[in-house]
Amino acid sequence: MTVALVSRPQDEIDFWEDDLDGEAAPSVLTTPLLEVLDARAAPDASDSPDKAQFDALADELAQAALGLSSTRRAARHPAYGEILALGEVAIPWLLGRLEMPGNRPLWLRLLGTLTSFQPGAGQQTVTDAAESWLRWGRSRGAV
């Protein structure tokens, strides 16, 4: 599976916002949305060098951030910026990290920084915010 960035017409944006079942969503999308392409059309992104790089960076960052009560401070670690530099290709991989408890606030912050589309906005708990992101990701085949 691979991902690509595409621009969306307003009717499709409305469709995705409707898919949130009333959860908070931005009124205007300022970044393109991810489109998951057919695996037959492109190499599997999970085997890409970027994925291996992401896994190494995410493991390093997660270990360094274990004692942080504020994920904002994780931005001081070099791996944080390197994950952001991978761009939106990292979104499905971050969603994958959200499936397991352990460092979910950190992955929520990175996801929220990588895209202005915020499926978890307005949720009260880490679990609810993670579930909102995962529902969004699953609905689009990104998880």
Partner: peptide
Amino acid sequence: TDGYNCVAWVERALDRWYEPGIF
């Protein structure tokens, strides 16, 4: 647990992670 942080612990809010941008 990653379900709450030290800020939530002040009020024993064991299902919150108080931080700008999170909750």
